[in-house]
Amino acid sequence: MKNIAVIGAGTMGNGIAHTFAQFGYKTHLIDISEKSLEKGMGTISKNLDRMVAKEKISEEDKKDTLNNITTYTQLSEGVKGVDLVVEAATENVELKLSIFKQLDEMCSKDTVLASNTSSISITKIASVVSNPERVIGMHFMNPVPVMKLVEIIRGYNTSDEITNAIMELSRKLKKEPVEVNDYPGFVANRILMPMINESIETLYNGVAGVQEIDTVMKLGMAHPMGPLQLADFIGLDVCLSILEVMYNGFKNPKYAPCPLLVNMVQAGKLGVKSGEGFYDYSESRKAEKVSGQFSS
């Protein structure tokens, strides 16, 4: 596999494109919004600048990485001639089914079709494709260029050949692939999301405040980031979507989203992406922090 297409220029999509391009793959980054593509490329450039500053890569490496990425707003153009498509669109079942129906028509029958979904059934996604054995899950972790894990999810019909090829490709990206079977939430989110949801329930019930809950988990359980801060980082809307997928898939009340999470998403408090979640990420708050560093 030499030519890769990534669908979606958001947080996960631009991170996936960055990673493939950094390892020498010709990468097509596709999004219907030119503005999203510009923002995504800007994020990639900034992340590469950080790597240069830390002397992890050279300026020449940065230039080569950016040169390996071509942007497209037309799906048909972006997937032309590629060996692998990685879909990283919004975590919405109907949207993903629509994209894979189009990919089935637009791509060669030999093109591997992967989804970066964090919870939606690969088997269901593959059901709209004429040869479902070539459909697989590649669940990267955020931030993609840094995090080593890739959950490789086998759908009911995913072939051994495709699974082995994607496992090997992940290793070439200096990742650690872990093969899992296709059940709601897979492994990572089946374990993580109930913990995040229970943390929100703990806050909702008035047991402790945001910082107190996160401090207990960081200092007591050696978590690098508290669950409420992590939820902000993931996106509260994404957390809600994953919990709903698991709740509907297992019909088990332990996966039911906390009412506080539902209300926060409805109010538009989505975490880092919206500027406010359990913590305040607004520009005014950043300014307060900066000014506080210079005051005694």
Rank of each mutant, 00 (worst) to 15 (best):
I7W: 11
G8M: 12
G10T: 07
T11P: 09
M12R: 03
N14W: 02
G15H: 00
H18T: 13
F20Q: 13
Y25N: 07
K26C: 05
H28Q: 08
I32Q: 13
I44V: 15
I44K: 06
S45P: 13
D49F: 08
E55D: 01
I57Y: 00
E60Y: 04
D61F: 07
D64H: 08
I69W: 07
I69A: 07
T70H: 05
T70G: 10
Y72F: 15
Q74F: 12
L75S: 14
S76K: 15
V82G: 03
L84M: 06
N92C: 09
N92W: 09
L95A: 15
L95H: 14
I99M: 15
K101F: 15
L103N: 14
D104H: 14
D104E: 15
C107R: 12
K109W: 08
T117L: 13
I120P: 14
I122C: 11
I122W: 13
T123N: 03
S127M: 01
R134K: 04
G137I: 08
G137R: 13
M141R: 15
N142I: 06
P143T: 06
L149D: 09
T158F: 04
I162A: 08
N164R: 06
E168Q: 08
R171N: 01
L173V: 03
E176G: 02
D182H: 00
Y183W: 09
P184S: 04
P184Y: 01
A188H: 05
M193E: 03
P194R: 07
I196P: 00
S199G: 01
E201F: 15
T202Y: 02
L203M: 00
Y204K: 07
G209W: 08
Q211C: 10
I213F: 12
D214F: 05
K218D: 10
K218E: 15
K218W: 07
L219T: 11
M221K: 06
A222V: 03
H223G: 01
M225V: 00
G226R: 04
G226Q: 04
A231N: 00
F233I: 00
L243T: 02
V245D: 09
M246F: 05
K251Y: 04
K251I: 03
V262F: 10
N263P: 10
N263H: 09
V265P: 03
A267F: 12
G271S: 00
K273Q: 04
S274N: 02
G275Q: 07
F278W: 10
F278Y: 07
Y279H: 14
D280Q: 11
D280W: 10
Y281C: 13
E283T: 14
E288Y: 01
E288M: 08
K289D: 02
G292N: 04
F294E: 06
S295M: 10
